[in-house]
Design a binder for these strands. Sequence first.
DNA 1: GTCTATATTAAGATAGAC
DNA 2: GTCTATCTTAATATAGAC
Lengths: 204, 204
Amino acid sequence: MNETPPLSRIQKKNRRAILDAALDVFSQYGFRGTTLDQIAQTSGLSKPNLLYYFPTKEDIHTTLLDELMQDWQDPMRAIDPEGEPLEEILDYVQRKLEMSRDFPRESRLFANEILQGAPQFLDALKGGPRHLFDEKVALFQTWMDQGKLAQVHPQHLIFSIWSLTQHYADFEVQIRIYLGPEGKDPYPEAGKFLRTLFTRMLTP
Amino acid sequence: MNETPPLSRIQKKNRRAILDAALDVFSQYGFRGTTLDQIAQTSGLSKPNLLYYFPTKEDIHTTLLDELMQDWQDPMRAIDPEGEPLEEILDYVQRKLEMSRDFPRESRLFANEILQGAPQFLDALKGGPRHLFDEKVALFQTWMDQGKLAQVHPQHLIFSIWSLTQHYADFEVQIRIYLGPEGKDPYPEAGKFLRTLFTRMLTP
DNA sequence: GTCTATATTAAGATAGAC
DNA sequence: GTCTATCTTAATATAGAC
């Protein structure tokens, strides 16, 4: 559908630098709260140079969101209908938690977008993601009906997984303040806690 | 410490209108993503008139955050050390969920502030709130040691309550998309779900 | 207290040299 | 491809009339 203009090595490198810097800033301040000056400064490129690689500020933002949508659902896709139900869900929780640990900026970019009313996502969310969600809801319901999982509201179960795992990225500042004087890594304990939580909730 | 200039009725009314409009906009776009024009339009007042009531944009924002800090901890303060442990926690969860339902904009204002690194909150959070948090952590630990609650990491327990309840306000757009075609109120089912979750996790 | 007009700076984007 | 200079619009804030 699209032309595929071959990118030189330097082009790739600079596009990456811009997107990386933009992710830093957009994930913290949202689209409207972010300025090209900030992205320029963070990336080490000049402002006109940004606009040589991306026609507009919005285009940078959209590119980031598009990339995010590619990977963000991988953990849910990986839930295996043939697997052992509780283990499948615990593994899903673990994968989501690792996403928060390893890609906190992406999580916050997403959070910012939703907070602002998901202007870009609204349509995208109704498409593929919605279908995947419904599919896993049905799967969880089947497992519960077969007595392999305790009965809970399957949609809210998924919301709870998203909420509990993304919280460690989105509210990281707050977590660090409350976890005490010198912030050791909260993720190992978070993993243990969440494993306990979902095991107790879902064991039939 | 401060002068207390008596406010006329019209002053109170206009200040309220401004703060209410500002809450609308700040909670959606964050401090930097919000413009005075938006607040002016939403409140129905002219832009110079905003600045008659509040010296700067920042002053409006700070006022909102200060008010928020007043009430935001009430649900946690209300946990009764003399009460029945599981019921106290379930009631706390319920109060937090009601805050999300009744004051979603406040929840999102808070979320935005944390996402942006909590520039205003950092110091405030280390003060009173931190003390209250530690006090309840100790209380939960006591209850667990007495065998009145199942053992879990008490700090992460509190994070989980915040996360699960605030999620319904902060990610409301997403929730509505996934809950289906015509969005009935998600809160009754959320309340039931969370009650089940915390009962199963915490029953000794 | 509220308004119109305006000063001033910041921000997105472009022109054109190199 | 990158830079300096600059255009244009938007945004915070102020002045001063009413």
